[in-house]
Design a protein around this nucleic acid. Structure first.
Lengths: 183, 183
DNA sequence: AAAAACGTTAAATAAATATTTAATAAACTT
DNA sequence: AAGTTTATTAAATATTTATTTAACGTTTTT
């Protein structure tokens, strides 16, 4: 590197580091490993990268890059790119945060809705059986009804959460909250 | 326990366990410890509880209950209750999932917006300086501009995320997505 | 067909986090 | 005010999770 551009070049790297640090810091709150968080932060300022480039850039092992990339692909924060003429796989960061937001939260919420609504429906059937069971004492029936009602109430929330995910997936949410709102 | 209500009682417990299992399972995706997840799941079917009751119920240590309760209070999934006549502190689960959702995600998103927007603003200033620096070569300036623009673009997302949090806090979101929507 | 390059899986190690035991501090009771 | 009950903090241990080293399988090149 020539003498004359050393300082501006350094300044650029420092500026990138600030943003990368913030991204990595907030990302591991999203349940990704430090390696994956750092990797995404790095890729955010790069074009496409190969596993070997990632390893060199981060000074970590190749399997670590491999698993991190896969995890990032799962939550759609990294996508595979095609590079003809190279045997190495190449990947690029998804730079549209709206897309990442959608992929991450919708996946999470849909899973939560499915798991919990499933358990709730099943439990409610059990409570109904208890209420109909002639061997249940009055206070047992009362308890069963109380729990049944509590679960019925909570279903409102899961339905809403499912709707929220759907409106984010479809983009309908942006009718309510536009992307470019100046405020 | 008398003979006659043994089976219905057992059925109630099993039904509760199903729901508790699902809640605990989805909760540790929310960054809380297994102890905290199980504790919340337990409290969800109980009225107020003391630390000693929690410990007995879960078979864990008191400090573990203490830290778990505190963590759950932070994300507003548990609230302290007053019980006159008792020296022991009592706590109750927040059963309104809409409230928990708001407390958890708004806190998370607001922090993300603050951290990342802060870093972005600061980095953008650096990139401007590089562009104005007479010792910067044309390709350095071009790079700086490219990064500046990329960050400028991303700010749209963070503003949107902040708006989303705000509309959830204010309840405005329910004008768009009503709670009781039948579907 | 053999050798080399690449990515992934498996086992082992290292690091981080959760939990417990023990000690301390604070609040209440007598 | 001394003793007791309760909650919290600190240090130690246990457990889990992340990462690495080593081995394997697959594809490509010569």
């Amino acid at each position: 590197m020539s003498e004359s551009n050393e300082r501006p070049q350094l300044k650029i790297e420092e500026a990138k580091d600030k943003v990368m640090g913030a991204i990595a810091e907030t990302m591991d709150l999203y349940g990704v490993t430090p390696a994956a968080a750092n990797l995404y932060a790095t890729m955010y300022f790069e074009g496409q990268m190969t596993l070997d480039e990632m390893r060199t850039e981060l000074g970590m092992s190749k399997p670590s890059m491999s698993t991190s990339v896969r995890k990032l692909q799962e939550i759609e924060m990294v996508k595979k790119t095609f590079t003809r003429g190279s045997r190495k796989h190449t990947y690029a960061a998804e730079k549209d945060f709206f897309h990442s937001f959608m992929a991450f939260y919708c996946q999470m919420w849909e899973r939560e809705v499915k798991t919990n609504l499933g358990a709730i429906e099943s439990a409610q059937e059990d409570f109904v059986e208890v209420m109909k069971d002639s061997s249940s004492t009055p206070d047992i029936v009362a308890k069963a009804k109380e729990y049944y009602d509590q679960l019925e109430e909570s279903k409102t929330y899961y339905h809403w959460l499912g709707e929220l995910a759907e409106s984010i997936r479809s983009g309908e949410i942006y009718n309510f909250l536009p992307k470019d709102q100046k405020d």
